[in-house]
């Protein structure tokens, strides 16, 4: 079946079957920037924004969010016309294999939208659902702090 969704600000008709998760539907329809990790809601690599809130798309049935705004990491660039957060990740060395990075960027964005100057504890809490197997987390926390400073200056 085909159903109308709003992805990255555009109305799009996505093919799906009604028991599929949002993660599967997005990837099957070409949004491969949404990464498939554990599919258990543990790793955060499949993070998307749902009405601006970071959520694990593997734990959401697609049909239940067909009337909501879905944003992937590619859409984030269009939405704000900015790449402040990905640049901060690159500059601080917070990226190695890059598999977790889309989720990390989206969780960071959701945090900084509501809290432009988060403490380190708040950053850790906001990213507690995003797991990185390569970098450790020190560089990632540095990246979010740097992005916060730069977004504050804009």
């Amino acid at each position: 079946m085909n159903t109308l969704f709003t992805v990255n600000g555009r109305k799009v008709r996505l093919s799906l079957h009604p028991g599929q998760t949002l993660l599967r539907v997005l990837r099957d329809n070409g949004y491969t920037e949404v990464k498939c990790g554990c599919e258990e809601g543990e790793c955060g690599s499949c993070t998307v924004l749902l009405d601006g809130e970071a959520v694990p798309s593997c734990q959401i049935l697609a049909m239940s969010v067909r009337n909501r705004e879905i944003t992937t990491v590619k859409g984030l660039m269009d939405m704000d016309g900015t790449s402040v957060i990905p640049e901060a990740f690159a500059e601080t060395g917070a990226v190695q294999c890059g598999f977790c990075t889309p989720g990390m960027v989206l969780s960071s964005y959701a945090l900084l939208k509501g809290n432009p100057a988060p403490s380190e504890e708040e950053i850790k809490l906001a990213l507690d659902g995003n797991i990185c197997r390569c970098t450790g987390y020190i560089k990632i926390i540095e990246a979010v702090k740097l992005a916060a400073v730069r977004m504050g200056k804009k």
Binding site: L50, V55, A126
Partner: peptide
């Protein structure tokens, strides 16, 4: 509980 991502759901 869970994680921030899960608490949102």
């Amino acid at each position: 509980a869970g994680s921030t991502l899960l608490r949102n759901r």
